[in-house]
Amino acid sequence: MKALLEVSVQESDFDLRILQGSLLRGAAEEGGVATFTGYVRGSNDQRGVSTLLLEHYPGMTERSILAILEESAERWPLLAARVVHRVGELAPGDQIVWVGVSAAHREAAFAACEFIMDYLKTRAPFWKKERGPQGEHWVDARDSDSERAERWQAQQ
């Protein structure tokens, strides 16, 4: 069966329980669901963060995340994979991103969930700007994120 793939880019918050349920196709094929939820940190590189602004490239964002999900479904036998990513103005503690994967066995679910998150960090066109007591500034990309994504290319 073809994996069910879905991408949502939205300003509104999301409900973890509803999202987890959306991965289950009711055919009792799912052996497991692996999920990752990202939250806005209250500090970054020792700077306080009061507001996080997320800019994105409408159209390319959805398209690039879907391409990541398609690649994950080619690499592992997945039943469903879904990404929800928020944009706009967020505060520390807010949910920012959710990745969920269902599969017959845990190995595929764990690996695909990590792969999707690692690729999303380096391929999906989002840009973070932090506001805090020391003013505002654009967040720099981390080499460690590129290295994590490259690790998957080596395993191809």
């Binding site: 997320l54 994105h56 390319m60 999906a124 066109p125 840009w127 973070k128 654009w138 720099d140 990309a141």
Partner: peptide
């Protein structure tokens, strides 16, 4: 065409 800095989502 788009020009942008390295991405920082997630």
């Amino acid at each position: 065409v788009a020009f942008f800095p390295p991405v920082t989502g997630g």
